[in-house]
């Protein structure tokens, strides 16, 4: 019989089991599978003559050679910028919306709460698991995007064009890889806000699907308002404005102050979501 975890202190052991529950569940991998599919699809579409021509034109207009900059790292960034906000949010919301609400719905939360464990601890472990999932999913997206890009177009310089964030830059292969890695880490840190919203809603008395849908609704409403010209003066109040800061890691001179400002904002938001979720969950009556 397994004694794998018998020597580990209690909190890490409980956290280990929380991760096991999350990563042993088949639906956790929907996001990974669909992202891989989307990456292949995008790679295929980017090889179509008109798409290549548009990219060639964009590079040529700025004095760069298509052959030198239409590379694996460039394609990785294209894949990430076009997919991560909408698709990534969907899968983060799906998992975070499930994390508490699904256990309540299935009855396993009741089994856990039969034990001498505080609700705060249970939620803390679940929130941490959500954050780990965020890092794992975004790390996976970053790595597979790069792999797909390199397999398809080979290694080389990096060209980044992110008009929403006003980024237009080129990097040597080494610097490009560093920027890509930094972008993925930063993306994980800011996308944790999506998981935190999902977690908060999951703590309320609602079905897991409702928590997922509401998370996405909140996010998309925020995105729309953030992009309306009337609210340009209030951009720093919108979550998606701060989430979008990850693309700034590709600016030639990284605006660290702006990045840190967004990071602090996002993590204050995360902690607020966690605290509010805990406050509500701890005062809930559990009755089937």
């Amino acid at each position: 019989m397994s004694t794998m975890t018998s020597g580990i202190p209690l909190l890490p052991r409980q956290f280990g089991y929380e991760l096991l529950k999350l990563f042993a569940r088949p639906r956790t991998y929907i996001g990974f599978g669909l992202f891989l599919f989307f990456e292949f699809l995008l790679l295929f579409l980017l090889q179509l003559p008109r798409a290549r021509e548009a990219y060639r034109e964009l590079l040529a207009n700025n004095g760069y050679l298509f052959a030198e900059y239409f590379t694996g790292p460039t394609m990785a960034v294209v894949i990430i910028t076009t997919s991560v906000f909408f698709l990534g949010s969907l899968f983060l919301a799906l998992v975070a919306g499930d994390i508490v609400a699904k256990e309540v719905e299935d009855g396993t939360m009741r089994m856990i709460l039969n034990r001498p464990v505080s609700r705060v601890r249970v939620l803390f472990l679940k929130w941490l698991a959500c954050l780990v999932y965020t890092f794992v999913l975004l790390g996976f997206i970053g790595l597979t995007s790069l792999l797909c890009g390199v397999v398809s177009r080979g290694w080389g310089n990096l060209f980044v064009y992110a008009p929403l964030q006003g980024v237009f830059a080129v990097f040597s292969p080494g610097e490009g890889l560093f920027r890509l890695a930094l972008a993925v880490v930063w993306l994980s840190l800011v996308m944790s806000a999506v998981s935190s919203i999902g977690f908060f809603l999951s703590c309320l008395s609602m079905k897991p699907a409702a928590a997922t849908v509401l998370t996405l609704a909140f996010l998309f409403a925020d995105f729309v308002m953030n992009n309306l010209p009337y609210f340009a003066g209030y951009a720093h109040f919108f979550l998606t404005h701060h989430i979008g800061s990850w693309a700034l890691t590709f600016q030639v001179y990284i605006p660290w102050t702006r990045l840190l400002e967004s990071l602090v904002w996002i993590w204050a938001f995360n902690l607020t979501c966690f605290a509010a979720g805990v406050a509500i969950f701890c005062n809930r009556d559990f009755k089937s």
Partner: peptide
């Protein structure tokens, strides 16, 4: 998993 919420369980 359930046992871990009560403390250390002897296998």
């Amino acid at each position: 998993i359930f046992g871990a919420y009560s403390g250390k369980i002897d296998p």
